[in-house]
Amino acid sequence: MDVKKYIASGILELYVAGTLSEEENAQIHGYAKEYPEIQREIEAIEAAILALGEASYSGTPDFSSLKEHLERPKNPKVISLSGNWAKWKVYSGWAAAAVFAIGFFWSYIENGRLQSKMDFVNQENQVMEQQILEARNAVSDTEKLLNTLRNKDINVVSLDGQEASPNAYAKAYWNKKEQKVFIDALGLPEPPKGMVYQVWSLKLNPLTPTNLGLLKDFSTHENKVFTLLNPNESEAFGITLEPEGGSESPTLERLYTLGAIAS
């Protein structure tokens, strides 16, 4: 074979370009092994194309970043997964939208639920505030009452149960200075319908009753402590049950409680 002529034909340049048939390639591969001149010629042509390609790029290729890719476990999968990955992106997008919608709906419902719960709690709070206010008022009323009864000018008189109602009792707190008497009637039974308790100031010798007043609205009265005016020089207090409106003089058969003032 005329090697020089073969080289001069230009077929080796096309071999490097990769434009020859498979048979031609195989043939040239064989010649290259056989004839070192052909091998050298091929390498020189390749070097020229390499140089031209290298001049067409001013960067410096970096193997380390490529190596990072290679060292990742089983990279070929990653490439073939790209289609699936795109699908996953779509699926996850829809999934995220669904989650968002459900979340939005849930928070809407939850918001309504919490709103009504809050309304209820607010109402409850108002009720409780009212109760606290009332309790405070009650306490201050009680304190007022206690202070009234503790007053040093007060004379405490125990009114004991009489024949008409042996278990009944009452207490009279008499502030002579202020001419007031406070009747604590907690120990008296509820008066029958149409009847009312009437309080009397008594002089004992001779027995002279003076009307002090009625224990009005007995059943609905809160603490059963009634305030009456008493300008008299009382020696005893008595409580009788009288027809509605009261009586001129006490009905002694219905004398419930009686107590004398200690002199």
């Binding site: 140089a51 290298e54 067409s56 960067g59």
Partner: peptide, 10 residues
């Protein structure tokens, strides 16, 4: 690599 990058660059 430099050559191949150059060919692609072209």
């Amino acid at each position: 690599s430099k050559n191949i990058c150059g060919v692609i660059n072209t």
